[in-house]
Design a protein around this nucleic acid. Structure first.
Lengths: 152, 152
DNA sequence: CGAGTATTGATGCAATTGCATCTATGTAGA
DNA sequence: TCTACATAGATGCAATTGCATCAATACTCG
């Protein structure tokens, strides 16, 4: 048993920074988008995945896996995206239960507009504050923290 | 103008990791607390600040500053904490508008129980995955990302 | 003092989230 | 085939959040 019930001061500090900084950054980015009259970050995440998926689209459950959103959140988010004409829901040939979600032209355009603002936020909040080397270090270390649930 | 509208690949990667990892960790910790029949993380944050403040307590607006919660969220969170008997609201002598929030004995006890679970999560999610040196590096680098809004 | 403004905290209402559950279709095995 | 179970996605309802605004008290300056 290497498990420790009480975290080290170093762990607590790193955790605290992670919590605080991530919340601040999300807030800043969200604020920037809102300021530009654009949809919230969550929409970007989904549009991004769908844009990468291309014409084939993605099934909702695939979006659930890739984005960390709960199933019911994806379900409702897609409903909103569809209502806004940013995505299309297509029936799926070999599975009567499912559907395939494909991003529309308007969806791509919205994503592009969002990226103009979101990307700038990333550049300012992160890119301008750490050197490329430091950024790589952060990425590598944070990478070691992935995949918490279910065994190593 | 050193401002860049488009973030570097390194910045994008670091951002993506930060977003993903922080969400996962919050989710894990939240799940652990729920599993233990304990209140959500937000309660801990407030109880923690109040416990550190001691008998003097804190004004709600001070909690707003320290926790990154919006003013109306603090207002409602405190109402719930009070309803659960975890904090007390005291009138403030020299400012008729305000109140002082003080943690109760029950509040301290709840905080302690939460820490048993929360601390274990931190130890497992962060402490067990990076060395003390690495943790310090993460803290230092994340520290450079603080305080995004309003001027350097 | 008195008017105008700022600050503290609360709240009505709409939107979103979480939870539990439901419907419908698919799959496996007797 | 028929039954039991698994998976995909939607949804009713309660709790929480965000937004805008409000009431009450404090402060500032003429």
């Amino acid at each position: 048993m290497t498990e420790k019930a009480t975290p080290s001061p170093e762990a607590i500090m790193a955790w605290a920074r992670l919590m605080r900084v991530s919340r601040q950054m999300v807030e800043s980015a969200e604020e920037a988008l809102k300021g530009g009259g654009l949809p919230p970050l969550a929409w970007y995440d989904v549009l991004h995945e769908l844009a990468e998926a291309g014409e084939g689209g993605l099934r909702p459950f695939q979006l659930t896996e890739r984005t960390l959103f709960a199933q019911y959140n994806i379900s409702r988010l897609l409903a909103r995206l569809e209502a806004d004409g940013l995505v299309e829901k297509l029936p799926v040939a070999d599975d009567g239960r499912g559907q395939t979600i494909r991003i529309s032209a308007k969806g791509r355009e919205t994503r592009r507009q969002m990226w103009a603002v979101y990307g700038r936020s990333i550049a300012e909040l992160v890119g301008a504050r750490l050197s490329p080397d430091e950024l790589n270090t952060v990425s590598a270390l944070l990478g070691q923290l992935r995949h918490p649930p279910l065994g190593e």
